[in-house]
Design a protein around this nucleic acid. Sequence first.
DNA 1: ATGAAAGCGCTAACAC
DNA 2: GTGTTAGCGCTTTCAT
Lengths: 356, 356
Amino acid sequence: MPIDPNRRITIKDVAEAAGVSSQTVSRVINNRPDVAPSTRRRVLAIVEELGYRPNMLARSLSQQRTHSLGLVTAGLKYVGPSRTINGITAQAEELDYMLVLKELRHFEFMDVDSVLDDLLSRQVDGILWAVSEVGDNRKGLAQRLPSLKTPILFLTMAQRKGWPVVKIDNRAGGRIAVEHLLELGHKRIGHIAGPLKWWEARMRKNGWESTLRNAGLEVADEHWVAGDWSSASGKRAIEQLLTKFPEMTGVFIANDQMALGALQYAHEHGLRVPEQLSIVGFDDVPETAFYWPALTTVHHDHYTLGCRAVKELVAMIDQRRQAELWGMPVEQESQSLLVSIDPTLTVRDSTAAPAH
Amino acid sequence: MPIDPNRRITIKDVAEAAGVSSQTVSRVINNRPDVAPSTRRRVLAIVEELGYRPNMLARSLSQQRTHSLGLVTAGLKYVGPSRTINGITAQAEELDYMLVLKELRHFEFMDVDSVLDDLLSRQVDGILWAVSEVGDNRKGLAQRLPSLKTPILFLTMAQRKGWPVVKIDNRAGGRIAVEHLLELGHKRIGHIAGPLKWWEARMRKNGWESTLRNAGLEVADEHWVAGDWSSASGKRAIEQLLTKFPEMTGVFIANDQMALGALQYAHEHGLRVPEQLSIVGFDDVPETAFYWPALTTVHHDHYTLGCRAVKELVAMIDQRRQAELWGMPVEQESQSLLVSIDPTLTVRDSTAAPAH
DNA sequence: ATGAAAGCGCTAACAC
DNA sequence: GTGTTAGCGCTTTCAT
């Protein structure tokens, strides 16, 4: 009896063709040991012949696990986030998890519930919240977190009790940037920050500020300006900053795009970099080595960040399954986790000792 | 009788609590009309109270459709691809489809079968193959395509019979770049191509070449060099090209990154842009406006491309469902589709009339 | 080593 | 309007 070619092959079709029960087929495709070698061979032959592929939906429903992770992102069009995704996809593949992707419309998207419910209704085994902390975009999450049964891990946000976090140490990034300028002999070091409702922007600024203070240097409001991460804002910001802080000989700029804007300003106004002004950026996007002059910048590894996040999340999932097996309830509180990845400095041509 | 708090709420729990059958609950949550208003209210109240969320896995299994799309990508860390994803996620959200993400390890990843099977076993309703055509990375697909029951749509590849494609018109991009230079009065126009195993690189080069020929100008092998898309290669390429083709007054470079490398070379060697050499790039990544000088470049809309691709794929899915309803088999051949999006030119400061 | 039965959570089809 | 039955494709008991 031929099979309807428009229907997908099921385990039953294979069972029938092999003259065994569907249970035996199930055993074979799951590599269980308790199958006679001859039976196994026969079944596998039929599987091949019919082109049978197990239906993961059915398997997931029955096993109560999907081997999939929900991935929540925002601003994929920006370089940083998409490199992180790169690491996430690679590691997920490695650990044999599928990714279900949800991109928020913007960074301060507040309707967290609909996103979470969407993912949970799909029965994902864990959730990766790869959205930077901006404004109070953690508020809705804070409400859901305690009652959430599914493991969730956050990227790039402030440490909070009960929130598992994997992040770049942005403050350390600010610190090494400023230390580099200090070592070159700079004393008047300004800062162009990202928008301060971004946690990352605050941390980078904090790194700048505290390092200067620790070096016994004074920090005033005239010494910094905030941009919005864009090159255009960087260009405006450097202009403002040069007016407010004309003695400045070095500046730490919170991302490479803004630094690029500053470089353009410098060219337009005949300001020589690094002779008259040293510039340190942040991110080390691949192009920075080809800016003019090549940019000294804080390097951090988005890719590794993504990999690490997936590893930790999967560990959380496994751990929780173990706990459930033993009948132990798992509280969110206990899921505290903080992984912090250290950035490094890439020195190029936009920094030098100050002229005097 | 209290419900085990560790178990997820099911439709049965709601039914029981509301004193109706699970079927009635199903009707309510699916917004069917044939439910008494009072019953509906009661059920909805219980749904709310218990925090019930339908299990999409079960629904998908029973309905034989998942409302999800498989998204295959490569090179997410590059700017272009990730902007496309941006459009794809937005449009998928809009049309209420979930995305299952698969990133290939590299552009010429050949083990197409495992990727396809992974997605198909998850029962995705359609597949978006958002990987550029490079080398013969379409070969494995060609074998699977005829027997594939699930609609699949390709981004950024050559037109082929039976392959639904949504793409940017790269040749037109090359054409408008060269036309711009011609209009400025340039006669010696070189080209830095991408790696020619990329279909997009070939098309851009073709646009350059054919436009020059149509203008009655001669094109020789000394007039172009291939890079690998990176800024470093662009820098090397411009050096080579200037040697081979010293009369050159204008150059069309196949992407912005390579153009950036060329700009750095120009700075280092005191070659004035645009006075001595006009440069046109391709992509119009946001930073190009802040290169020095600001880059004239071919703009194309990755975001719209992604949106359009999702729309077309969903249309294919709907169409096929209709056909199946009428009992008509759908052949892949009939699924031919070619959407081509026209790029535009963004004129900035890296182009001018040739000297004298 | 293999099979039968029940169940995962939902919906389609048919009753009443 | 609402309930009953069967089934989506698989796995998990529990027999044998």
